[in-house]
Write a protein that binds this DNA or RNA. Structure first.
Lengths: 122, 122
DNA sequence: AATAAATTAAACCATTCGGTTAATCAATTC
DNA sequence: GAATTGATTAACCGAATGGTTTAATTTATT
């Protein structure tokens, strides 16, 4: 049981963390890498022009958003992608899909239409 | 022509901005509100326990992520949701769908099932 | 013309972010 | 058991975030 004044983690908290985690290209790249299979921290860090601690921090962010899981085996930490929160984010976006879809369709038709002599607007 | 050293805005830049914009619950709430129709800045700000300038800043973030558009009409700024970047974000998430899908399908069925006497799982 | 309204701009503040290097710790290997 | 490896922690740094309050700006109202 949580010891002191500790608010319950809400769905909003989770979205905060997930979207924040996704808002960094290094972290997205890490996810992309992990999408092809689990990997050790050092291997994950290798392609990046930054220090190991930096990558370690990124992984911690991903982990606290529950986007990855890690299995500690001896001194090596094996990271793997974990999908559920992405699904939440996807659902959130999905919520708006109905809305855009129609607008985008219209926009797309407009944009892709034979270039008519441009009217003011904007 | 861009005056000085000015990098071209990449798709990654765009994802950075969109996900960052979505990573704040106030901004998500603003989007939610706007999903129901355009609104003036003051009206958008009303429900929030924060100053108008604060909301104004949030709107600027949403705007620079191209998630909203604004039409200035006299002294009132009318904001409206703009869907395209959300679509990009959705596409990005979609990219991972193959991976989760199988894992999550089962979970989704479970979660959305008629409330059965809850079994463990997580 | 004076005032009020809608909004942004500016200056400021505390906190978080993303990175660094150096130190630490635990598990292997020689 | 001493050195090496895999990884985190700690301390620090500059820049960005999210908020504030106080102007400033522009447009509308009376």
């Amino acid at each position: 049981m949580p010891s002191s004044a500790q608010r319950k983690a809400t769905a909003e908290d989770s979205l905060d963390r997930v979207f924040h985690a996704l808002a960094d290209r290094t972290r997205r790249a890490l996810l992309a890498r992990l999408a092809q299979g689990p990997a050790r921290v050092t291997d994950l860090a290798a392609p990046f022009a930054m220090s190991l601690p930096a990558v370690s921090k990124h992984l911690k962010v991903l982990e606290s958003a529950a986007l990855i899981e890690r299995a500690v085996d001896g001194r090596v930490h094996r990271c793997a992608i974990a999908a559920a929160p992405l699904k939440d984010a996807g659902r959130w976006l999905e919520h708006y899909r109905g809305f855009w879809e129609e607008r985008l369709e219209a926009l797309a038709r407009f944009v892709e239409a034979p270039a008519k002599p441009k009217r003011g607007r904007r």
